[in-house]
Amino acid sequence: MYPYLRYAKSMVDSFRDNRKTGFISLANTTEVDVRCSVTDLDPMLEMNNGRVLTVYDIGRTDFIIRTGLGRALLKQRWGMVVAGSTIQYRKRIRWFDKITIKTQLVGLDEKWLYLEHSMWVKGKPCSSVLLRNGITQGGKVIEIARVLEALNEPDLVIEPEPWVQEWIEANKDHRWPPMG
């Protein structure tokens, strides 16, 4: 089951913090804390790999709210899609572990935002995911320049880091499974 209660609590906390501090730049890193619960566990009594991606939604939503992107999405009637992802796991997350999710923008191009989320327990990295995100209007991905303008950051340039650029290039050669 989707962690609706944790997700809603995180959103309320993000909105509350924004009232105190205001929006931050897309260039900033955000952090949000969650706890591994019994519903996150697999038979090995560690956070399930699929649940990791779901819990990263909390970090992404926190980033969207704190940067003002969420407000722009609502105001412009835009959507946000994940168009690609890759994940790496390093350390197990156990029941009741306090997890810090860090989210940062690691690249922009004409069409995509590249976000990196990472999970940390006791100061040690547990996993990291790279996402290609698009902002949509009427079901089509729009230019990032429009998004930056709406956020009053029209001059923001974040060149994809080399490892991100390699991932972008490698995905151009991605083969889809054969039909049939």
Rank of each mutant, 00 (worst) to 15 (best):
K111E: 12
R19E: 13
M179A: 14
V32Q: 04
A8F: 11
L151I: 06
F15K: 12
S118N: 02
E149T: 11
G134W: 04
T100K: 09
L151Q: 07
V164N: 08
M44N: 11
L148Q: 02
S25E: 09
M11T: 14
R92F: 06
G134V: 04
E110F: 09
R35E: 11
A27D: 13
R90Y: 07
I142A: 12
L26I: 08
Q165C: 01
V81T: 12
L113T: 01
Y2M: 12
V121F: 02
G70T: 07
G139D: 06
L151H: 03
K124E: 04
E166N: 14
R175T: 11
K102W: 00
I168E: 05
E149G: 05
V129G: 10
G59S: 08
G70P: 05
F23T: 14
D155S: 14
V129W: 05
L115N: 07
L131Q: 15
W95N: 07
Y89A: 08
T86K: 07
D33C: 09
E166C: 06
L113H: 01
V82E: 14
K124S: 09
R51S: 05
Q76M: 11
Y2V: 09
I87C: 02
L115M: 11
R94M: 06
R66N: 10
M47H: 04
F63W: 13
R16H: 13
G68D: 09
F15I: 11
I87E: 00
T103I: 01
L105C: 11
R94P: 08
L41C: 08
T61A: 15
G84Y: 00
W95Q: 10
M119D: 07
M11A: 13
L108W: 07
Q88T: 14
L5A: 06
Q76S: 03
V147T: 01
N28L: 13
W167Y: 02
G180Y: 03
E46C: 12
I135Y: 00
D155H: 10
E159L: 03
A83Q: 10
A83W: 02
L130K: 04
W95K: 05
M80F: 04
P177S: 13
M179T: 14
T21D: 13
K102C: 11
G139W: 05
Q104E: 15
K111N: 08
T21H: 15
Q76R: 12
K91G: 00
K122L: 14
A145Y: 11
M119P: 07
I87N: 02
W176Y: 14
K102L: 03
Q88N: 14
T21M: 12
R92L: 09
D17G: 00
M179R: 15
S25W: 02
V147I: 02
F15Q: 09
N49Q: 06
R60H: 08
L115E: 10
D13Y: 13
R16M: 12
D13M: 06
A8L: 14
A150E: 12
G59I: 03
N152Q: 12
S127A: 14
G59C: 04
D62M: 03
I58R: 12
P125R: 06
D33W: 10
R146I: 03
V164P: 02
P154V: 05
D62S: 05
W176E: 15
E31H: 09
I99Q: 03
W112R: 04
L41A: 05
D33F: 12
R6I: 05
T86L: 00
D42C: 07
D97P: 02
V106R: 10
N48H: 03
V82I: 13
E46W: 00
